[in-house]
């Protein structure tokens, strides 16, 4: 089992950001879905040893994320949503830094290999400020892959990318899974989760409200509707349409718009 959590809980003061989460993730692409603030990133931060759980246990490749944090860090890679690559360094220098910090053997060869794998070989010696958003994302993936992780955590990997770059990103991610890497992804994009994730969990206010393969989740609510269901419908049924309550008054908004005519 690549990831296992038992009653994983995180409090920030009185706020319960992650509430009694139980997960089992194997060699698959596992998608964690939820609204902004549902607790997805907090969950990832705990699994990547960047945050201590308040209650409960979590294991990555059978290592305890608190007591064996060092071991966990050796087998994972984490790509946060910020696109943190050094724009004044070249693509190769960016990846080389991680190869050195991971203590990768035969660095030069491995760096060239991952840059090639991510389709960046031709631009490896250019500074990253000349890279497009999609290339920067792939560069981050190259950094993450340089030490051959067993579990890869991706926080919103396709955020802000165009259609072609998103498609490419998912092709790379699928390829990684074929090669035995377990992938834990958080995303807002239901269509992507539907198409590419083996299993998804839907998170709402810190709790997991549904967890299964996209097909089974869609089947489970089929009886409720006549038209073909999508993962969007599943999500809305489990979580409800109102993300932030009381923030938006449709009636007032309409009168406001009418007045502008």
């Amino acid at each position: 089992m690549s990831i296992k959590t038992i009653g994983l809980t995180k409090y920030f003061g009185n706020l319960c950001a992650v509430d009694n989460v139980n997960l089992d993730v194997g060699n698959e692409i596992f998608g964690l879905l939820g609204l902004n603030g549902a607790g997805k990133t907090t969950t990832v931060l705990m699994l990547t040893t960047l945050l201590k759980p308040s209650i409960g246990e979590a294991y990555v490749c059978d290592f305890d994320v608190v007591r064996e944090a060092g071991e966990v860090r050796k087998v994972i890679s984490y790509v946060p949503q910020d696109m943190a690559v050094d724009i004044k360094l070249t693509g190769r220098e960016n990846v080389m830094l991680y190869a050195r910090l991971y203590g990768v053997a035969d660095r030069n060869k491995r760096v060239d290999e991952v840059l090639g794998l991510m389709g960046l070989a031709g631009r490896a010696n250019d500074r990253v400020n000349s890279y497009s958003g999609g290339m920067r994302r792939r560069l981050e993936l190259a950094q993450a892959l340089v030490h051959e992780p067993r579990v890869l955590f991706l926080d919103e990997p396709t955020l802000g990318l165009d259609v072609a770059a998103r498609k490419k990103m998912w092709e790379y991610i699928s390829l990684l899974k074929e090669n035995g890497v377990s992938i834990f992804i958080t995303t807002h994009y239901m269509d992507e989760a539907d198409k590419f994730c083996d299993r998804v969990a839907i998170m709402d206010r810190g709790k997991i409200v549904a967890m299964d393969s996209p097909a089974k989740l869609k089947d489970s609510i089929k009886s409720l509707s006549i038209k073909e269901t999508s993962l969007d419908d599943v999500f809305l049924q489990k979580v409800g349409a109102g993300g932030e309550q009381g923030g938006f008054d449709e009636y007032k908004f309409r009168t406001l718009l009418r007045r502008r005519k």
Partner: peptide, 13 residues
């Protein structure tokens, strides 16, 4: 702010 620190902290170094 830019997220580098979190990436570095998740490394085994």
């Amino acid at each position: 702010i830019l997220g580098f620190l979190n990436k570095f902290l998740a490394l085994p170094a």
